[in-house]
Amino acid sequence: MGPSVGLVLLFYFIPVILTFLIAFTDMGRTLIWRFIGLDNFARLFGVGSRDPLIPRILLNTIVYTLGALPLTIVGGLLIAVLSMRMRPSAGLFFRSVFFIPRAIPPVVWGFLWAWSFEGTRYGLFNAILAALGLPTVQWLIRYPMIIVILANGFLGISLAMLVFSAAIATIPQELTRAAEVDGASEGQVIRYVILPMLKWPILTMTAWHLMSFLNSYVYIMLITGGGPYYATEVWSLYAYHAAFTQYRYGYGASLVVLLVVVNVVLFLIILKAFGMQRMLTRGKIEV
């Protein structure tokens, strides 16, 4: 018990507090603590010397999240439902193909996308286009946001699809058979039997990925680096860049603080919806 609490406190609790403290300083490359009150937040909210990039970053974050989230859920459902209604070996093959993004390291997944959509003819898809005699496309410059959404969305799909498949596997076979006897077509079985029984997994995965997409920036960093010219810079990546490339730790921390606040609010809403009490069971031996 002790070490667990200790480590969690050390690397979770203290960092949260530290983040809040740093957010009120103008900590820079020199690592000197100097409190400047609400200046960082004033800058964020456009009071006084405002940060002209903020509206852009905000819009990017919304577009990115609203793009990747439905892709993950709908895509995950589609793959799970279809692969579970196939021959088992074929279903397993497709699930393996879509699980690979999560099985390989992020850097490799990033490399795959960066290479596949490389703008010169050395990139995979451009090489194919060139081989077919078609003009090459500057993918990462013309469609950066779409590529970032796809790369992250299919990462989400790999988890969602597994969770949904597992849930479908627990639906008793009698149920789908009963529906078929009752005269339901393949599509109707999915619509009236399978999907309603996936309600909880769908809600869980939506909540999980909503938070995940709001906070994830590693893949964007690896594929586009936030560019070209802030086209794919989302809030969390902007915070990272502020701190670790521009060495404005104080400003970066204030960006994170806002994100933490949004997270906690979202999380409380989710917990309320799911009911936490049932997860806590009592001990049954009192010695």
Binding site: Y12, I14, P15, T19, S212, V260, L266, F267, M279, L280
Partner: peptide
Amino acid sequence: LILQLVLHAVPGQILLIAVFFL
């Protein structure tokens, strides 16, 4: 138990600045 749950609200990757200082 609740603490462990609530911590999910704050993913480690965004706490990097503080972890750096720590």
